[in-house]
Amino acid sequence: MSEPTGARARLLDAALACIDRWGLAKTSLEDIANEAGLSRATVYRYFPGGRDQVISETITWEVGHFFARLGEEVADLPDIAAKLERGLVFGHQAIVEHRLLQQVLSTEPEEFLEELSETTPLVHAVVCAYLADLLRHERLRTGIDVDTAADYLARLFFSYLGSQGHWDLTNPDEAKRLVATQFLPGIVV
């Protein structure tokens, strides 16, 4: 996905500001156009689907940012184990500290989660491809299918990002134990 520029980026930024101020359900196309200082016609030129398309692309864009930051955070780490450990700690913290995310989760969970779930197949595919690539650089146990393993790792990673459950993911040692016992023991030699 290439980074949107110009009017498109201004509209996505404006949509985020509107969601922050008025919430997801109450944000209208006019609000977004006004916030961006553009006309309704311009919004429709960039987003023929109107308000709903702006909102859904804004969420996809923000999710993309999140995973881009996560990718940068683990880029220099030597192997998949180190990347997963750091990714769990960093990702957990980023989600807990994401003010707008926490706000919509507590005020409009239904609307927001429906929108977010639309991005699931795309995000899952991107993360699976990333993990599969990492796995191809590891020594794998006999009989491991890279794509099935990447799919498992992605699902487990999303589950722990969403909620740490009874683990303490602010603690790197716990993340290490989690990766060693549940993520990689059957996959990497």
Partner: peptide
């Protein structure tokens, strides 16, 4: 889906 998702997503789970 909005009725179910809050109970299986993020801290909601």
């Amino acid at each position: 889906p909005g009725v179910i998702l809050p109970y299986v997503s993020f801290d909601g789970m």
